[in-house]
């Protein structure tokens, strides 16, 4: 009876299913990785962002959109205006009905135009249904992925490195655990099974700046790029923060001195 009542309350707060399914499930600590953008003085490493962008555009972009980032934003990675124009022009944008007076041309194909720097990254699929049809599940948009997961970049890194061929003992013996041969086991993914196969491997993308092309390095670089996609303001934010803090320190110290002076003769 007591259990029933508890369940009723849990259900009414909409907390039930997952709250109870998640408690007691085995999730290891996130893998250790560090980035230049962490900490008080942290800044993005532009070279790393460019490496990460290369991985995104050559690997991730085949399935994952990056809807909130525009080609013009790539200037933050050190690309020149002309380079950005070229990158954008490689993609075609479907024209909405009306721009060309019709949706399809005489050959029955969509009217398109090359993308320009002001356009957002062109998604790999026309819509969610097409993406699901090809992938079996919806590959999430990556624009905010490091902000939208507990653990942020550390989670995304651990996830990328967390695919396993063998299900570990701790999970195998868990109550309610069911093997799923159709999907991919990932120790960090809530529910363990993910539709995406492992993507990270050594030399998956060629680096031109001499950085070792290990799987760990690739994963670090792509996560740095994704963190930039989610928080492009980070460099500006932290550098402005330092100036503001310095100003406030001086101001507050002066206010304190003034307070001492004004109160000097008041016993309190």
């Amino acid at each position: 009876m007591r259990k029933l009542l508890i369940a009723a309350v849990a259900a009414f707060t909409l907390n039930l299913g997952a709250a109870q399914a998640n408690s007691g499930t085995y999730v290891p600590e996130f893998k250790d990785a560090s980035w230049s953008f962490e900490g008080f003085f942290g800044r993005y490493d532009q070279k790393q962002l460019r490496r990460g962008y290369k991985i995104y555009s050559q690997v991730c972009a085949a399935c994952h959109s990056l809807n909130r980032v525009a080609y013009r934003n790539l200037s933050a990675l050190g690309f020149t205006e002309d380079e950005i124009k070229e990158i954008a022009a490689e993609k075609e944008i479907r024209l909405p009905y009306g721009d060309a007076g019709a949706l399809l041309n005489d050959d029955g194909e969509f009217f398109t135009r090359p993308a320009i720097p002001a356009d957002k990254f062109v998604p790999p699929f026309a819509n969610d249904a097409a993406a699901i049809d090809v992938n079996g599940a919806l590959p999430p948009d990556l624009s905010l992925i490091t902000k939208a997961r507990k653990g942020g970049p550390h989670y995304v890194y651990s996830f990328l490195m967390g695919f396993m061929d063998e299900v570990p003992e701790e999970v195998m013996h868990q109550k309610g655990f069911v093997l799923n041969e159709d999907k991919n086991f990932n120790i960090y993914f809530p529910g363990y099974y993910n539709s995406m196969p492992p993507q990270i491997m050594d030399e998956m993308v060629e680096y031109e700046d001499g950085t070792p092309m290990t799987g760990e390095q690739h994963a670090k670089d792509i996560v740095a790029f994704l963190n930039w996609a989610a928080e492009p303001e980070l460099d500006h934010r932290k550098s402005l923060g330092l100036k503001v803090m310095l100003f406030l320190l001086v101001l507050t110290a002066m206010l304190y001195a003034l307070k001492r002076k004004i109160w000097a003769n008041v016993k309190h």
Binding site: G241, T252, L255, L258, W263
Partner: peptide
């Protein structure tokens, strides 16, 4: 003056989160 001094201290505490931990109080979801 005592309140102004308090505001200085408060602003430093407040803006630490704004500039370095902006999503500390938030939910990733």
């Amino acid at each position: 003056i005592k309140d102004l001094f308090g505001m200085g201290v408060f602003l430093m505490f407040f803006l630490y989160f704004v500039f370095w931990q902006p999503n500390f109080f938030g939910e990733p979801d």
